[in-house]
């Protein structure tokens, strides 16, 4: 793993985590579809952009790890454990679905839309299911599968907005492929990365205290 990619993991993971804390909480507080927006737009955009630019497997999982840790620093709103688990699961699902994908340039727009739908919906549903399994296990060391099965129709239904947003977002991400952040000079790249990442952490922590 080269240094620029590592710095990219920290940078984009921090941006993702900060947005989960600030934007996610704002959407929830105003009864807007936070899960759909965070998965279908934010997570998918950040992960697909970095995959195209850095072209490395594992990077998105690292970013999800950073984002989930940052989410945990904001304990005063929402289900803390659920969100962190869901974010991590999105990284895992993305790495599996995009194992052999590094570039969208050769894809038609309809294929990108399809891929966006598939990635967003799968991330959302599997993330939701994983939180419903792991949260009780972590909290009470027990899990009742009937609780999950009874709620499955709701989970599958709630994934629709995320799927639609993903289908719209991914083709738009392909338009920014020319903005290759990895080609920025090292003298600017590393200081900017550290500064922005730190700022994200400060914003997330302050937001949690407010």
């Amino acid at each position: 793993m080269d240094k620029k990619m590592l710095a990219g993991v920290v940078l984009f993971g921090s941006i993702w985590g900060m947005l989960e804390c600030v934007l996610g909480d704002f959407l929830r507080d105003n009864n807007l579809p936070a899960g759909a927006v965070m998965t279908g737009i934010i997570a998918l955009t950040i992960m697909s952009y970095t995959r195209m630019v850095f072209r490395k497997r594992g990077m998105q999982l690292g970013m999800a790890g950073i984002a989930s840790v940052l989410r945990v620093t904001n304990p005063f709103t929402g289900c803390l454990i659920c969100s962190a688990i869901a974010i991590l699961m999105e990284g895992v699902v993305f790495e599996i679905l995009w194992y052999n994908l590094f570039d969208l340039r050769e894809m038609r727009k309809t294929d990108m839309m399809s891929l966006g739908v598939i990635t967003s919906y799968t991330c959302y549903v599997l993330g939701f299911m994983t939180t419903q399994i792991l949260t009780p296990l972590l909290a009470t060391l027990s899990f009742n599968i009937n609780d999950l099965l009874a709620f499955m129709p709701q989970i599958l239904a709630r994934g629709l907005p995320a799927a639609i947003l993903g289908g719209v977002s991914l083709p738009l991400v392909s338009y920014v492929k020319s903005y290759d952040i990895s080609r920025v000079k090292s003298s600017l790249y590393y200081p900017a990365t550290v500064s922005i990442a730190l700022l994200c952490w400060v914003i997330a922590i302050v937001n949690g205290m407010m």
């Binding site: 839309m113 399809s114 891929l115 739908v117 598939i118 919906y121 799968t122 599958l156 239904a157 994934g159 629709l160 799927a163 289908g167």
Partner: peptide, 10 residues
């Protein structure tokens, strides 16, 4: 696959 997932969701 995308159509199938959308169908399931709808």
């Amino acid at each position: 696959v995308a159509s199938l997932l959308l169908l399931v969701s709808i």
